[in-house]
Amino acid sequence: MAILNKRLAKIVVGLILVITVINLFLLSSNSNNKNTVNHLNQLISSQKSSPKQQSDDNNKYGISIKLDDINLEDIGAKGVPLLSENKHNQNNSTVTEEYSAERHFNSIIENNKIIVFSKSYCPFSKGLKERLSKFEITPELKIIELDEEENGSELQDHVFKQTGRKTVPNLIIPASGLNSIGGFDDFKELNDEQIQKKLNSLCKDTCHLTLTV
């Protein structure tokens, strides 16, 4: 019995020693964390300190962090700065290019040979498109519905400046210049053969109309 009691006593003493060592380790770890937090707070509050002093402090604590990477508005509950993602997102984000009606118009006339500026609800635009639907047009007729364009109003103003016609429909053939070929009234008195002859002469081998109906 005496031997058993001695063994139990040794086990209890051993457990106490283990618990004591763990507590000491935890206290030491908390102390180190507190020192690190204090150092980061000192870095933030001393932005005007010399680069050499900041470098010495960083080396002392084994921390490599630049104040430029710290968003002072994003400070954690214990004073630990949270590295802001905003700066990186701004650097990587694509800047939205401002709309230019001139650039849009130039792109349209550079990539198409025969163009009608229209509005989907306009009866005169519908009338001209119906007349042109009787023809097989090569390359394909480009129809720009200004009311369906995000910046249609700005584009229409620029079309007016370039072609001299503010209303729709407005047919242009870049090969013959930027002046408007006409609207609905300019074609309503012409028969199909006359329209074909007129537009083919203005296309100058860049486009061609063939009557199909």
Score class of each variant (00 low, 15 high):
residue 2 A to F: 11
residue 3 I to Y: 11
residue 7 R to Q: 12
residue 7 R to G: 06
residue 10 K to H: 02
residue 12 V to M: 05
residue 13 V to N: 12
residue 16 I to Y: 06
residue 17 L to P: 00
residue 21 V to R: 01
residue 21 V to Y: 04
residue 22 I to V: 12
residue 26 L to F: 11
residue 26 L to W: 02
residue 26 L to R: 01
residue 26 L to A: 10
residue 29 S to G: 06
residue 30 N to M: 06
residue 32 N to D: 08
residue 33 N to L: 08
residue 34 K to Q: 13
residue 39 H to A: 14
residue 44 I to H: 07
residue 45 S to W: 00
residue 46 S to R: 08
residue 47 Q to L: 09
residue 49 S to Q: 03
residue 52 K to C: 02
residue 52 K to G: 00
residue 53 Q to K: 09
residue 56 D to V: 07
residue 58 N to C: 12
residue 58 N to M: 15
residue 58 N to V: 02
residue 60 K to D: 03
residue 60 K to M: 12
residue 66 K to M: 09
residue 71 N to R: 03
residue 71 N to H: 06
residue 80 V to T: 10
residue 81 P to S: 08
residue 84 S to G: 15
residue 88 H to W: 11
residue 88 H to R: 15
residue 97 E to V: 14
residue 97 E to K: 10
residue 98 E to G: 00
residue 98 E to H: 12
residue 100 S to I: 02
residue 102 E to F: 03
residue 103 R to I: 11
residue 107 S to G: 15
residue 111 N to Q: 04
residue 112 N to A: 06
residue 116 V to N: 08
residue 116 V to K: 07
residue 118 S to G: 00
residue 119 K to Y: 07
residue 120 S to E: 11
residue 120 S to Q: 06
residue 123 P to V: 07
residue 125 S to L: 00
residue 126 K to W: 00
residue 128 L to I: 10
residue 130 E to Y: 04
residue 131 R to W: 04
residue 131 R to V: 13
residue 140 E to A: 14
residue 140 E to R: 08
residue 142 K to H: 09
residue 143 I to Y: 02
residue 145 E to Y: 04
residue 146 L to M: 06
residue 151 N to L: 00
residue 153 S to M: 05
residue 155 L to P: 03
residue 157 D to V: 00
residue 158 H to M: 06
residue 159 V to E: 08
residue 159 V to D: 01
residue 160 F to C: 03
residue 164 G to S: 12
residue 164 G to V: 11
residue 164 G to Y: 07
residue 165 R to F: 05
residue 166 K to Y: 13
residue 167 T to K: 01
residue 168 V to C: 07
residue 171 L to A: 07
residue 171 L to C: 03
residue 171 L to N: 08
residue 172 I to S: 01
residue 174 P to F: 14
residue 178 L to R: 10
residue 179 N to A: 13
residue 181 I to Y: 00
residue 181 I to L: 03
residue 184 F to L: 07
residue 184 F to V: 13
residue 186 D to N: 14
residue 186 D to C: 04
residue 186 D to A: 14
residue 188 K to N: 14
residue 189 E to N: 07
residue 189 E to Q: 13
residue 189 E to C: 00
residue 194 Q to E: 15
residue 194 Q to D: 14
residue 196 Q to E: 15
residue 198 K to I: 01
residue 199 L to N: 03
residue 199 L to C: 08
residue 200 N to Q: 11
residue 203 C to D: 01
residue 204 K to H: 05
residue 205 D to R: 10
residue 205 D to P: 06
residue 205 D to K: 03
residue 206 T to G: 09
residue 207 C to M: 01
residue 207 C to N: 03
residue 207 C to R: 00
residue 209 L to H: 06
residue 209 L to P: 03
residue 209 L to M: 12
residue 210 T to P: 04
residue 211 L to G: 05
